[in-house]
Design a protein around this nucleic acid. Sequence first.
DNA 1: CGTGCGGCCTGAATGC
DNA 2: TGCATTCAGGCCGCAC
Length: 275
Amino acid sequence: MPELPEVETIARGLQTLILGRCIARVEMLFSGSVQGDRRILTENLTGQVIQGVRRRGKLLLFELSDQMFLVGHLKMTGKFLFFPPGEMEINTHTRCIVHFEDKSSLVFQDQRKFGYLRCMNDTELADWPFFAQLGPEPLCMSEQDFVARLHSRRAAVKALLLDQTCIAGIGNIYADESLHLAGIHPQTQGASLAEEKIVLLYHSLHKVLTRALEAGGSSFRDYVDGLGRPGSYQDTFLVYGRGGRTCRHCNAVLEKTKVAGRSTVFCPWCQPKIS
DNA sequence: CGTGCGGCCTGAATGC
DNA sequence: TGCATTCAGGCCGCAC
């Protein structure tokens, strides 16, 4: 499930691979993977040149000519794969192929069909509610802003980390990992957290995201970057996917519960209920 | 408005 | 063995 570090790794990798390439044709193999007008994607992109590949939250933004953007959300199983000329491989999960003029290609695969592509200009992008309502980037926001956003809410702190309008880019893996590092119980209400605890969480989140970026992301299930390479941060998971096993810090048995409808693992000793 | 939960989708893992 | 159930999870839409 690609979160901030994975999507950032994909964006950086694809940037070097497809910058300046000109789109010859966009081929949709499954129309359900397009949001909005499908014809814009298949008809209006021909001749457009890739000007940049960026990330905002978990969104991948391909910047094109004429203030146009090809926007992609990978959700859980989405992948963007680049293939040099003559090397393209497609399978039953291939949803869309962007053919470039030099015969190289960018393929969108998505087993569970949750992910999507959409094409829009800069104004439409800015007016798109999901994009407009995204919270700040965790690696760019200030400590004070982070404290203010969590301290003013009554929901469970884990639900707040997952709320993309509160903070953008965090998913289940990095929520659990950063809460563990900060020693905070995932069910704790934002408003009842001591300010110094929220500051600690801010720095823990920074640490976890930075290390995950250095590791090229996490490949717990099937994440790979634009060249099909997995990340390695899953080797250092402290809690995610480790329910029932022992805490690497104190040897207590890690508990598995549900918070905000998501499977949640935490250490009952390192992350006590009252913080 | 803030919060919580079901549904979407597929395939791997588990249960009987 | 074979069938049925459970689980994973980002985000939308709905109910309270």
